[in-house]
Simulated scan of single mutants.
Amino acid sequence: MTADAAWLVVIDPQEIFASTQSPWGSPFFPAAMERIRQLAAAHGDRVIVTRWVPTADRATSWGAYFAAWPFADQAENDPLYALVPAARSLTARPTVDRPTFGKWGPELTAITGPAPRLVLCGVSTDCCVISTALAAADAGAYVTVVTDACAGSTAENHDAAVHVMGLYPPQITLTETAALLTSG
C-alpha cells in the first residue's frame, strides 16, 4: 500500500454493542462484523480498532448520561467493554480508547496523521460512527463510511445516520463492502 492509502478504523466492536443481552446490543452486529473482517484483511497493517470506555468526567453531561444508563457505568476493564472475539485479531496495534462517542482525536491522528484517508465501519452507526465521521471530516480528513459494515441501534436509526453522513460530500462518501473491495 502507498503512504496515502486509507486507514480502516473499526469503531467499537465491543461486547456491550454486540451482546443480545445488552440494552445497547445491535441486532445487525454479526452481519457487520463479517464485513469488517473482510475489510480488515484488505487493509493489512493499516487497521485501527477503537473502544469506547466509560471514563468521562461525571461532573459534565456524562454524569447525567450514566445516570440514564446505569448498566454501562462500569470500569473500563469490565467484560462489557472487551472486544468481541472476532475483533481481537484484526490488528496488532493497541486499541485507541476514548471516553467520547467520536473517536477522532489526538490518539487517532498520532497514527493516521492530521488529514488522512479513513474508511470507517463499526457500531453504532447512529452514535459513534457518525460522531467520528463528522469530526474527522470537519478536521480535513477524507472519510469513506462502509454502510453495510456498520451496525445501527435500529434499522431506522442506521438509515437516518447514513442519510446525514451522505449530506457531506466530498468530505464523506458512502459505499458498501463489495464496492470498496472491488475498487481497489
Results as ranks from 00 to 15, higher is better:
1 M>K: 12
9 V>E: 03
10 V>R: 00
11 I>L: 05
15 E>Y: 09
15 E>I: 13
17 F>K: 08
18 A>T: 00
18 A>Q: 02
20 T>I: 14
21 Q>G: 06
28 F>E: 15
30 P>N: 04
38 Q>E: 14
38 Q>A: 14
40 A>E: 01
44 G>D: 09
49 V>M: 07
50 T>E: 00
57 D>L: 12
59 A>R: 11
60 T>A: 03
69 W>H: 13
74 Q>T: 08
79 P>I: 10
81 Y>G: 06
83 L>C: 02
85 P>H: 00
86 A>R: 05
86 A>Y: 06
90 L>V: 02
90 L>M: 04
92 A>N: 06
92 A>E: 04
96 V>M: 01
99 P>D: 10
102 G>E: 01
104 W>C: 08
105 G>A: 08
108 L>A: 03
112 T>M: 02
112 T>R: 01
113 G>C: 09
113 G>T: 10
116 P>E: 09
116 P>M: 14
118 L>I: 03
120 L>E: 05
124 S>L: 15
129 V>R: 03
130 I>N: 07
133 A>H: 07
138 D>I: 10
140 G>K: 14
140 G>A: 13
141 A>S: 07
149 A>H: 10
152 G>P: 12
155 A>R: 14
156 E>I: 15
159 D>Y: 11
160 A>C: 14
160 A>F: 14
165 M>K: 01
165 M>W: 06
166 G>R: 03
169 P>T: 03
171 Q>N: 15
171 Q>K: 15
173 T>Y: 13
177 T>W: 01
177 T>V: 02
182 T>G: 13
